[in-house]
Amino acid sequence: MTRRTLLWCAAGMGLIAYPLLVNNFWLVQIGGRTLGFGTIALSLVFLVAYGGMLSLAQMTVAGVAGYAVAYFTAPVAGVGLLLPWPLALLIALALATLAGLLIGLLAVRTLGIYTLMITLAIAMAFYFLTLQNYAIFNGYTGFSNVQPPVVAGVDFSRALPFYYLSLAIAAACYGAVRHITRTPFGLALQGVRDNPRRLRSLGYDVARVRVVAFAIAGLLAGLGGILNLWLNGSISPASVGINPVIDVLMAAVLGGFLHPIGAYVGALVFTVVDNFAINFIARERFNTLIGLVFLAVVLFSPDGITGLLRRGRIWLEEKVARLNRRRGRNAGSSSPMQSRQET
């Protein structure tokens, strides 16, 4: 346990000290993007790991929040309505939560593979809506020049403040997920995942537990979506199209569904590959590369990188244990427990 706490402290300090070590590109394009995009992936990992529900609509929910912020803070050509930024953020997060709730209401009508289908259909319907609709979504062009606010003299469009803002939000979201899984609701959610029938007979409203999980995931995705919007400065149908929708799934699968940290691990790998694909493969063929990596993970290591790490750690621990045992035997002092294992 202490070793784990130590590890977390080291990771936290590393993340806080990260800006001292790198230039602005690594700070924003890798660091900031990983944290924002990872938060969207976190909402998916939360749904899968604790609810057993694979949703492809998390980028869509993030897009709802992004579009709302853009609509209320950066109106273009008669589309949008300028509001003070705290109100705009509040509305955006409320809308994202509501979108998550509504998607949940639809998705929990069926289960398993059907959830995947329905959420993909929702995601693509939203994409086509943003593309066709000019009154709210400003069609093909969408919104551009969306700036993060300046709060108390701190300009969040600058690299360093933006990184710390992303880090704070990502850490809060991660902490919230860790916390929720230990609350009665989180335990009920995991119970619903493992045995819905038993939970139902215990008096839980299984559908409601699932819908609430979708709403929470909606809020998380909304926060990630706003960070993503501020990073890009713009939002358009291409931000919620099939590719970004699948990107979230890829990041989550790459990282693995065993642990919420997988979302950020996957997002980091995805972002690094995205930015440096140009070095090992033509820039335009990034999708082939990441698609093959994704396929390989699905085929050979279904629990992703965190699964690989966990298996690696177990393997290492066994190795160390065996080494210790051998050393112990050489010293002629093997306990009865160990000798029973060896026979």
């Binding site: 398993g112 593979i113 999708n287 082939t288 396929l295």
Partner: peptide
């Protein structure tokens, strides 16, 4: 079934990119 669906998503991404190329 979920793993099959994920694998088919991977295939569709690679296929779309190769067709575009």
């Amino acid at each position: 079934d979920l793993r099959q669906a994920l694998a088919s998503i991977g295939i569709s991404i690679v296929a779309a990119d190769q067709m575009l190329a």
